[in-house]
Each structure stands twice: as C-alpha cells, then as structure tokens.
C-alpha cells in the first residue's frame, strides 16, 4: 500500500490515545499511537509520518520539548498539538515555532476529523 498515510499519536493517557487512534482510522489514515515523547522520537526516526498529533502535557519529555526535538531532525512533518490546559505559554511557543494548530480537550470529533483530513491531504497529498 504505497499510498498509506501514517499519523502518529502521542499522548500519555491511554484512553485519549485510543480515542485519537479511532478518529484517525475513521478519517481514513493509518494510526500509530505512543505514550511518551521519547517513543514518538523513535517512531519518527524509522517511519515517514504524514501528521503528528502531540499532547502538550506529558511526564518526562513534555510536548514542547518533544516538538523541538522532532524539528531538530525533521523540519517538515506537520504537527498538531492537543491540550487540556488551554492555550498556555508552551502551546504558544510551539505554535510560533511552526506547529499548525492546537486542539483543546474536550473537542468536537467531526471537526477534528475534518482538520486531520485537511492537513494530511494538503501537507502530503497522495503521490
């Protein structure tokens, strides 16, 4: 399946992870879900993802640091942030550094699906 598009989900909350997994799948893409920033970096080094959905509040490596680390070796993969803590400083910093947008929890599923689809189609159209 050459035209499979991969979306990486990074969230320390297992249920939120599963929720995004199902949403990505329903959106027509192939989800991979990990529970930490470190695991996300490992995934990104081996798989070419079309989108990363990144939680901002995580123990150990938080969302902002994970985002910065991703950008050190991958300048192009689109990153969408998620947060339950409002548009705080770390969100704003990540947005100013090129993260596309932030989804605030809880969120509207239909709108989120549309957002994910728009980004994947626009940023990495089918080859």
């Amino acid at each position: 399946m050459a035209d499979k598009r991969y979306v990486l989900i990074v969230d320390d909350n297992e249920d939120v992870r599963q929720l995004f997994y199902d949403i990505v799948e329903l959106s027509g893409f192939t989800p991979r879900a990990v529970g930490s920033g470190v695991a996300a970096l490992q995934q990104l080094k081996t798989t070419p993802f079309d989108l990363v959905i990144l939680d901002m509040r995580m123990p150990d490596l938080n969302g902002l640091d994970t985002f910065k680390a991703i950008r050190q070796f991958n300048s192009s993969v689109p990153v969408v942030l998620t947060t339950g803590f409002g548009m705080d400083k770390s969100v704003q910093e990540a947005l100013s550094m090129g993260a596309l947008l932030c989804i605030e929890k809880p969120f509207n599923v239909a709108r989120t699906m549309k957002t994910i689809q728009d980004i994947v189609e626009k940023e990495s159209p089918k080859k």
């Binding site: 939120v16 199902d22 803590f85």
Partner: peptide
C-alpha cells in the same frame, strides 16, 4: 479535560 474528552469523544464516535 482529558477524561472528559474520552467520554465525549467516544460518545461522538
């Protein structure tokens, strides 16, 4: 907000 997004999100699905 996290557990809330879980109940709300799965219910919407």
């Amino acid at each position: 907000n996290s557990p809330l997004s879980v109940t709300s999100g799965f219910a919407q699905l």
